[in-house]
Structure formats: structure tokens, C-alpha cells
Write a protein that binds this DNA or RNA. Structure first.
Length: 613
DNA sequence: AAAAAAG
């Protein structure tokens, strides 16, 4: 598929003239007469007439099936509205024009108004005074602007189209680390732009890196250069949509594959070429076993919600994909793990997939205090429905134009989700539900309907707990509390995103006593008001410690497990040994004492644990 | 024990 880039380059060199790509021999000859490098990075391939003519590629495969006809996705100026030709994704068969992922947005060149920024952008004021913790050797310093990083003009333009003005904290730190070629384990807040944090370096790396060799002879096997895995289908879809925006007109192709949807369409997309494959594990294993995908060329591996991907349910599949197929080993490929939460048992498992990695935890002080208002109410099992009804009524009263604010209600079981949805509808609350017993079509329809406000109440199992970015979720209700505090963190993280405020209400009763202590600790750390009755439950249940207890007092949602043992446990002074200056150059390495935490000198109170993506 | 992920 590299050759399709080559064709593009050739095409571009000919100023978009409809001439066939040069033969390999011609390419070589041309190159011999020309000292320019043979490889043309994708960000140069869509250049307009003013761009210097790139050298012809040395690896042209014209005549083979890997050299499809030249793409015609150059559009004058590159940034304009472009008129027709968009939205032909899925139509047209061999029409290779790239659908405009920004088609549904106002693409005018008007400066972004304050209001717009407020409504659509990220509220960066919410990200001041971020505590940052890094460990590992030679940590690259963070950047403050996208301009400081050379991501290439095409990517920069997409960043502007996305209305990203400056990098979020996780992006400031993670992008230089990734661009530096380092493996990374990153804990980052919910809704703080973590997808971009791993997409930008991957796209940039593919654009500027060496051209890929031709895929092996397996006729229909495709060889992506990057693999992004996520635990749910909807999250994979979302990552794919984001990544498509970031890679628009870069020549980098992103394809998604997940279960529950017809495989044939996904196969067709794969055959058109794939640089970045976004997938759920099951469908990927299927594709690997059918030999439709080979991982032999993988340079970048990203696990989103990495702790989830490595817990009991997923670990075997992930090991199979990463260790037992044909993926290059750690140290050869570059591996990036992202999550809000990273229990140290899982960190230990994860380290199998990493090589000399940097651990990064980025959080903001008092984030939950400012952004997610957490409440816990004591509600008997039998009273939950009527209590929920009260909340919804109160909200409706506050709603704009009688419109219900978006409310996401988490329950424990799929049956429970159906039952609650049914009951809500009976009571004139337009609700829908998403869970694993529904068809993929139903799941996607439910999500759409919720996002659009058509059914402003979504009853969900944990399938919706992680990663999903649903704008304007005003309220997350933990109708049934999860059994794991990390799940709670992810669930409430569906609100209070991109610097906006949110509300989270949990129903607590005797069935949740195992959560009392961890919930109390979490809320305390986030400067939330803890009801006295909850503290009593916590005191009562705390003797055994409890599996939900976060070690060391849990100032951060994540902490490098490699540092365990080099500090006295008990966590009275989590950051005490770190220098609180700007020293990002951690020198410690594994378990060494020389941890240079770049803790952003905050004395305003306890750190944050609340919302980590 | 539940949920998710292949069909």
C-alpha cells in the first residue's frame, strides 16, 4: 500500500496530471539522477502546485495489485470547503477520494469566537496547575504548543480544523515522549484528549518514517503499521472517527474492525489499504486467523483503556495478538498504553509488552471538585426507581426548554438495563439502553439517539463505562454501584469532559459496603463532601483493608509500580521524595531512587484521583 | 457474579 502513496507522490509531482505512475525502473533512474531522498512522506504528497516536486519513489509497484490507480484527493488549497466529492464513503467503489471527516462542521475561516470556544473547544482554564509525575530514564521535556513539535503541515491543519488551540497536559507530555521513540505507560484524565496524544505521534511517525516494504506474498493479507486496540466496539468506532480527522489528507489510512458488524465491508476497507488499524480484540483475532491481516509490519502498538485490556477477561486475547502472532517484539515496535486507572498488578502484566518505558501520570488538582460534582445517596434497592424518578424530575425542571439534560444511568446487569429502560419509558421518560445483549445495530442506534437528545436517558452496563466521549452528558447516575472503584472512576468520567462541569450521583446501600472505603477515599481526595453515614460504613468495612483500597493513599490515579519498594509504604508523603521543581528529566530508571517527578509545584491541597482516562 | 469480545 506504500505504493499507493508512491503513486500519489508521482501524481503530485506531475501536478495532479492524470498520467500513470512511473515504472519502477524509471523511478530508480530518476532517483539516480536526483540526489533527493527517494521517500516522500505523505504530508508532502498532497501538496499543491507550489510544492516542490518530490522525487519519484524507488518502490513503485505499478502493475502489481499494490499499485492501485492514482488517488485524486488533492483539492486546491487543501483547506477549503471543497464542494462536491465529499461523503462518498461507501459509495463509488473505486473512487479513492477521501471522505471529509469534517464535513459536518462549519469549516469557515472565521476566527473562533469566545462563545464557540466555550461550546465546542476544551476549557483549558480547567487544566491549570496540573500535577505531573514521570519516571523512567531520560524523559523528554514537555512542550507547550503544537508549534513546538514538528508534526507536519497536514497534521497541523487538522489540528486547527479540530479547533485544538494548544495541547492538553497529557498531550504536552506524551507526544514528545512518543515522538522520541519511547514506550509509554500513561495515566491521563478522562476527556483530556488522550486519543490525540497517541494518534498524533503515530500519524506523524508514519508520515516521516521509512517507507514500508511490500507486504508478504499472501495475496489478500494487509500489513498495518500501527495497531490500536480498545475494549469495546463503540470505543473503537470513536477512536477511528477521531483518527480519521487527524489523518485527513495526510495520506495515512485508518481502518476500523470490530465484531457484530458484517465483516465483508471491513475486509473491503482493509483491501483498500491500511496504515493504522483500530480494532477490538475478537474481530482482530478472526482477521489474523483468516490471514487477512498480518502484524509483521507493526511499528506502533497502542492499547487504549490498557488496564481493562489486560485484566482477566481480555488478557489471553491480547497476549495472543501481541505475543503469539507475527508482531515485532517489544523494543522493536513502539508501544503505548493509556488509561485513567492502572492498578499495579496490571502494570506488572503490562510491562511484558513494554521496553524501557516511561511512566507518565497527568492529573489536575481538584479536578473533581471543579468539574465533577460527586454525590452519594443512601437508597434501598426497592427505592431506587422512585429515587431515580425524583432526580429526573428535578432535572427536567431545570432543563432548557423543557428538554431533559442527557443522563447516563449505569446498572449492573444487561437484564437490569432492559427492565429499567422499559420502566422509564412506561413513565414517560424517553430512554434507551446499551448493553452486550443488544445487536450492534441497536447499540449504535441507542448511542446515536442518546447523543442527539432524542432519548436523553441512556441506561447502560459497563460497556459504556470507558472512553466514550459523549458531549453534554450532564449527569451520570450509578443506579447500581460497580464492585471496583476503578470502574466507578471511568463511569463518572463520562461527564465533566473537556473541561466542562458534570454531576455524578451514586445510589449506595448494604450491597455496596465493599465500596465504602474506596469511595470515601476517592471523594475525599477530590475534595468532595463525604456523607457521615458513608464514613461510618467505611470505618466498619475498613479492617480488612479491602480489595478496593488504593495503596499508598492513592494521591494519583496511577503510580509507577516500578517505584514500589523504593519508598516506604503507607503513602504519607507520596511526592515527598520527588523534586517539585521543573525537573522533568527523571534519571531513576527502574526502581532507582532518582525519580525526578515533574510535580508541578502544587501546594493547594491533595492531588487528584477522580477522573482519569 | 457480571460485563465485554468472534460467529
Amino acid at each position: 500500500m506504500r505504493s499507493s502513496w508512491a503513486d500519489l507522490a508521482a501524481n503530485s509531482a506531475a501536478e495532479n496530471a492524470p498520467t500513470p505512475p512511473p515504472s519502477a525502473a524509471a523511478a530508480v533512474a530518476n532517483n539516480a539522477a536526483n540526489t533527493r531522498p527517494v521517500y516522500v512522506p505523505p504530508h508532502l504528497r498532497n501538496r499543491g502546485p507550489s510544492a516542490p516536486a518530490p522525487a519519484a519513489p524507488a518502490f513503485d509497484n505499478s502493475g502489481s495489485r499494490w499499485a492501485p490507480p492514482p488517488r485524486n484527493d488533492y483539492r486546491g488549497g487543501g483547506g477549503g470547503r471543497g464542494g462536491g466529492g465529499y461523503g462518498n464513503r461507501g459509495g463509488g467503489g473505486w473512487d479513492r477520494r477521501e471522505a471529509n471527516p469534517f464535513a459536518d462542521q462549519d469549516d469557515s475561516e472565521e476566527p473562533v469566537t469566545q462563545e464557540e470556544q466555550e461550546n465546542t473547544g476544551i476549557n483549558f482554564d480547567a487544566y491549570e496547575d496540573i500535577p505531573v509525575e514521570t519516571s523512567g530514564g531520560n524523559v523528554p521535556p514537555p512542550v507547550n504548543t503544537f508549534a513546538e513539535i514538528d508534526l507536519g503541515e497536514a497534521l497541523n491543519q487538522n489540528i486547527r480544523r479540530c479547533k485544538y488551540v494548544k495541547p492538553t497536559p497529557v498531550q504536552r507530555h506524551a507526544i514528545p515522549i512518543s515522538l522520541g521513540g519511547r514506550d509509554l505507560m500513561a495515566c491521563a484524565q478522562t476527556g483530556s484528549g488522550k486519543t490525540a496524544a497517541f494518534c498524533f505521534p503515530i500519524i506523524s511517525g508514519i508520515m516521516t518514517g521509512q517507507p514500508a516494504q511490500r507486504p508478504p506474498r499472501g495475496v489478500r493479507t494487509v500489513c498495518p503499521l500501527a495497531l490500536v486496540l480498545s475494549p469495546t466496539r463503540e470505543l473503537s468506532m470513536q477512536i477511528h472517527e477521531e483518527a480519521r480527522k487527524f489523518s485527513y489528507q495526510t495520506g495515512v489510512r485508518v481502518v476500523v474492525a470490530y465484531g457484530g458488524a458484517p465483516i465483508n465491508q471491513q475486509l473491503r476497507e482493509l483491501e483498500r489499504g491500511v496504515d493504522i488499524l483500530v480494532a477490538t480484540p475478537g474481530r482482530l483475532v478472526d482477521l489474523l486467523e483468516r490471514a487477512r491481516v498480518s502484524l509483521s509490519m507493526i511499528r506502533y502498538l497502542a492499547l487504549d483503556e490498557a488496564d481493562r485490556m489486560l485484566d482477566m477477561g481480555f488478557e489471553p486475547q491480547i497476549r495472543k495478538i501481541v505475543e503469539q502472532m507475527d508482531m515485532p517484539p517489544a523494543g522493536v515496535r513502539q508501544t503505548m498504553l493509556f488509561s485513567a486507572t492502572f492498578p499495579k498488578e496490571i502494570q506488572r502484566l503490562a510491562s511484558d509488552f513494554l521496553s524501557n518505558y516511561i511512566f507518565l501520570a497527568v492529573g489536575r488538582v481538584g479536578s473533581s471538585t471543579d468539574l465533577i460534582d460527586q454525590r452519594v445517596e443512601y437508597v434501598q434497592e426497592s427505592d431506587k426507581r422512585s429515587h431515580l424518578m425524583d432526580l429526573l424530575h428535578a432535572q427536567r425542571a431545570n432543563g432548557v426548554q423543557g428538554k431533559q439534560a442527557l443522563t447516563l444511568v449505569f446498572v449492573e446487569t444487561k437484564k437490569g438495563a432492559d427492565a429499567l429502560e422499559h420502566w422509564l419509558c412506561l413513565n414517560n421518560f424517553p430512554a434507551t439502553t446499551i448493553h452486550g445483549d443488544r445487536s450492534q445495530q441497536e447499540r449504535e442506534a441507542a448511542l446515536r439517539s442518546f447523543k442527539s437528545g432524542n432519548t436523553p436517558i441512556l441506561v447502560a452496563t459497563d460497556v459504556a463505562a470507558r472512553g466514550l466521549d459523549i458531549p453534554h452528558v450532564a449527569h451520570v447516575v450509578n443506579f447500581d454501584l460497580p464492585n471496583d472503584i476503578d470502574d466507578y472512576v471511568h463511569r463518572i468520567g463520562r461527564t465533566g469532559r473537556a473541561g466542562k462541569k458534570g454531576l455524578a450521583t451514586a445510589f449506595f446501600n448494604e450491597n455496596n459496603t465493599s465500596m465504602a472505603r474506596s469511595l470515601q477515599d476517592l471523594m475525599q481526595e477530590a475534595n468532595q463532601e463525604v456523607p457521615a453515614w458513608l464514613s461510618r460504613f467505611a470505618a466498619r468495612s475498613s479492617f480488612g483493608g479491602g480489595k478496593n483500597r488504593r495503596s499508598g493513599g492513592g494521591r494519583f490515579g496511577g503510580r509507577d509500580f516500578r517505584r514500589e519498594g523504593s519508598f516506604s509504604r503507607g503513602g504519607s508523603d507520596y511526592h515527598g521524595a520527588g523534586n517539585s521543581g521543573g525537573g522533568y528529566g527523571a534519571s531513576g530508571g527502574y526502581g532507582g531512587g532518582g525519580y525526578g517527578g515533574g510535580y508541578a509545584g502544587n501546594s493547594a491541597g491533595p492531588g487528584v484521583t477522580s477522573a482519569w482516562d
